[in-house]
């Protein structure tokens, strides 16, 4: 067991359990678990107050590898279980780890309600655009035409953009990162942790076995700089090898376009400045798809509001304040009663 002297500074290793890791060699999940362990150590959180909850899938194996409390539950239902945990003990730091199938297919309804209610958990969606655990069927995030055992001629249904779904569900924190981008990922995780209310983080995760390189259009070494837009609150939306390409609103239409600073009279002031609290901008950024546009990464939207569990607890406290002497025996004797004499 994990016995730690209080006050001792925990390291990434202290957040690593003794369980044998069962992911395929080269799976993007390794990088993510390592980033999470490192980030928790940097955040200085306590192990006993941290709970990882997951559904089913490769990604959902995650809690076994963390030396915290962990609950590996059933396919798609982790948000509901996490809600019960958080409502019972709001003091706990609850993280949910889910795959694209777990979160958006079987569990889509629960994720929607978790976000809408704004339950204070960190929801990490490991998006590999495939069902890994069940051996490679296409998923709700797979692009049209994805060939898989169940779609040998290519998938036909339109994929969902996870971040757009989250924004549409009322999420008040929406961020994105990539499994191998250790530093940006860690930053996003920290922001998610600090955010009160539900934080939704989509992590593009490479499934080396069933969907290798599916994100290469913006993660491949030679393409990354020109196809990743790392958004930062208050900073211009610039990207590219020379950081001279930017986004602006088209003057004649309600849509974004790419411009190059220094060309056609464009100056940096023409480029849109990121505003985390702007829902409309966040929706536009979330919807951008390579190769026409860069993939927006980082904290796309953050506009905190009290978490559901805070409001639930406040109501209970209010009820208690209104009737301080809650006595069940008295309650049962309220209203019409009558005595039968012996």
């Amino acid at each position: 067991m994990n016995v730690v002297t209080p006050g001792e500074k925990l390291t990434a290793k202290d957040f690593t359990s003794d369980q044998e890791v069962r992911w395929c060699p080269g799976c993007g999940d390794y990088a993510i678990v390592s980033a999470v362990q490192g980030t928790l150590a940097e955040l200085g959180v306590s192990r006993e107050k941290t709970v990882f909850v997951s559904g089913i899938g490769c990604a959902a194996r995650f809690p076994y590898y963390m030396a915290t409390y962990g609950f590996h539950t059933i396919h798609g239902r982790a948000p509901a279980i996490a809600t019960g945990i958080k409502l019972t003990n709001p003091e706990l730091d609850v993280w949910v780890v889910s795959g694209d199938g777990d979160a958006l297919s079987i569990g889509g309804n629960h994720l929607f309600h978790l976000l809408r209610r704004n339950v204070d958990v960190q929801f990490l969606l490991f998006n590999n655009e495939i069902y890994g655990l069940t051996k490679g069927q296409y998923s709700p995030t797979s692009r049209v035409g994805t060939r898989s055992p169940s779609t040998p001629m290519g998938s036909l249904d339109n994929p969902v953009v996870a971040a757009s779904f989250a924004l549409g569900s009322g999420a008040r924190f929406v961020a994105r990162s990539v499994d191998t981008l250790r530093k940006p990922l860690s930053q996003v995780l920290k922001r998610a942790y600090e955010h009160r209310g539900a934080s939704f983080v989509e992590i593009f995760q490479n499934c080396i076995v069933y969907n290798d390189a599916v994100f290469s259009s913006f993660t491949a070494k030679d393409l990354a700089a020109d196809n990743q837009l790392h958004v930062e609150d208050g900073k211009p939306l610039l990207f590219g090898r020379e950081s001279n390409r930017g986004l602006r609103m088209k003057p004649d239409a309600f849509e974004l376009e790419i411009v190059t600073v220094g060309e056609n009279g464009i100056v940096e002031a023409d480029v849109l400045v990121h505003d985390e609290k702007n829902h409309l901008l966040a929706s536009m950024l979330a919807a951008l798809q390579p190769p026409a546009f860069p993939m927006a990464l980082g904290v796309i939207y953050c506009d905190p509001a009290p978490g559901y569990e805070t409001n639930v607890t406040a109501q209970i406290e209010e009820a208690k304040a209104n009737s301080p002497a809650a006595d069940l025996n008295a309650l049962m004797r309220q209203g019409h009663t009558w005595t039968v004499k012996g």
């Binding site: 539950t73 059933i74 509901a80 809600t83 019960g84 019972t88 309600h113 209970i316 208690k320």
Partner: peptide
Amino acid sequence: KHYDVVTFQAEDEIAAVCSAIGA
């Protein structure tokens, strides 16, 4: 509520039982 009872109207019966298991 004043008896330390938390109630949660879930989105469906699956979420209802799962929230209770979480609790």
